[in-house]
């Protein structure tokens, strides 16, 4: 049973509790501290970031650490005597431009949604998905180009990384396209407005992130 029953109001307290050498209970927090549902009217969660955005950034943290693992392996093996660079397929340049362009269209999708121009947002969203798919197709072409030149997964350490890093990035981008398709269902049913458009903004963040990740991987593969 709870400790303090009705009659505790009459308890006389000899001294207020003093924090002992700074080791006492922490001071009372401001009223809005907390974060969950509101048991009282007029109460708003204090955590400044929405749940969806928080989850997105946690997922991106996982992705960063995954690729940090790959990158450190790359950098360590880069110093191995057996390292042999292979020529990067030229189509990677084209793919990079396609992906960069898709980031631009994604950004336009987001802005049009935020402004409430749904009709225009639909167009840009379709363009983004198409460019994303074109990028993935282009990466497969790059693999075929490599294989045509006799460079396979196990040929050299560099080629192993080339296949695996592009493959891993492609998988994550495919996830982005799936998310875009899911969100687009809402866009095409005009569910998002200037006020409620979080899924689109989250998609955009993920997309730009994948774009930045690819630029990083491309530079790593090219320069290191």
């Amino acid at each position: 049973m709870p400790a303090i029953t009705e009659d505790t109001t009459t308890v006389r307290v000899p001294e207020p509790i003093q924090p002992r050498d700074g080791f006492g209970p922490p001071p009372r927090p401001p009223e809005e501290d907390g974060g969950g549902e509101d048991p009282r009217p007029g109460w708003r969660p204090a955590f400044p970031v929405s749940r969806g955005r928080l989850v997105l950034w946690l997922v991106l943290t996982v992705v960063v650490m995954l690729f940090a693992g790959f990158s450190s392996a790359y950098i360590i093996l880069r110093g191995a005597p057996a390292w042999q660079n292979v020529a990067l397929p030229a189509s990677l340049w084209a793919n990079t431009f396609v992906l960069l362009a898709s980031s631009v269209t994604m950004e336009w999708t987001r802005r049009r949604t935020v402004e409430g121009h749904t009709a225009s947002a639909k167009k840009w969203m379709a363009a983004t998905a198409a460019l994303g798919a074109a990028f993935l197709g282009g990466q497969v072409l790059a693999w075929m180009e490599l294989a045509g030149a006799g460079v396979y997964l196990a040929s050299t350490l560099h080629s192993s990384f080339l296949y695996i890093l592009t493959g891993m990035h492609g998988l994550h981008l495919a996830g982005g396209i799936a998310a875009l398709a899911y969100v687009s269902a809402g866009v095409f049913r005009n569910r998002y407005s200037a006020a409620g458009h979080e899924p689109v903004t989250l998609c955009a963040t993920y997309w730009h992130f994948m774009d930045g990740l690819w630029v990083y991987l491309f530079l790593l593969l090219m320069l290191a």
Binding site: P29, G34, G36, R40, L54
Partner: peptide
């Protein structure tokens, strides 16, 4: 982070 009840500061 997001579901602590009122008054449950970190």
């Amino acid at each position: 982070l997001t579901m602590r009840t009122k008054g449950m500061s970190m």
